[in-house]
Amino acid sequence: MKIEKIFRNIPFFKNIVLDVILFESQYPVLFTCKNGNDIYLFLCCTVNADKVVWIGTMTDYDTLIALLENQITIRNAFLNVTKEKIVITYNGENVEYRLVQSKDIPEDLLPTAGEYMDADEDEYAEEIAVFKNRSFNVEYVIQPCINSFYMIHYREKSIMLTDEYFVDGESVTEKRYDIGEIQVKKIALA
């Protein structure tokens, strides 16, 4: 069963890549995939003679790390981040998919409620390190004021926000910008 080949039948997954396998049996059961800049969490919930079914969700590295550190349940890790989920069904020949709201996913396809990964200490040290390295989510809380610029320091690099980051005199709550190799994805303005 070639997961990438199957998933790439889906229009918005044409370049999807199998990333990290978090749990496997005879096949990958819980794993991440990279789709461009986005990271997805997939779970293979059904395998029988008729079909293979995966449920998937866009996720983020904070959620994945929390999952592997036993801070959130497997179900909550899947349901977090976004309400839109994908259900992929493969019958051995054809691939079908449907986008659903998390509340509409059949209960039996979801991971059993209340169950954690129960990971041993260091069991996922390598994966957590990879995810932490990839995670550039940084939040700053900035007191609101009308100035011509803000100066922010992060890991010995500094950036300057000027008036152009504010639209029509109103502050925006989120901006994305580059600082050399660091890409700060989010700034929360208090």
Partner: peptide, 17 residues
């Protein structure tokens, strides 16, 4: 823990495991 993980994720198994 691996058999429990499998049962958590596979749709055939419900509680109690």
């Amino acid at each position: 823990k691996d058999v429990k993980r499998f049962m958590t994720m596979d749709s055939r198994f419900g509680i109690p495991f």
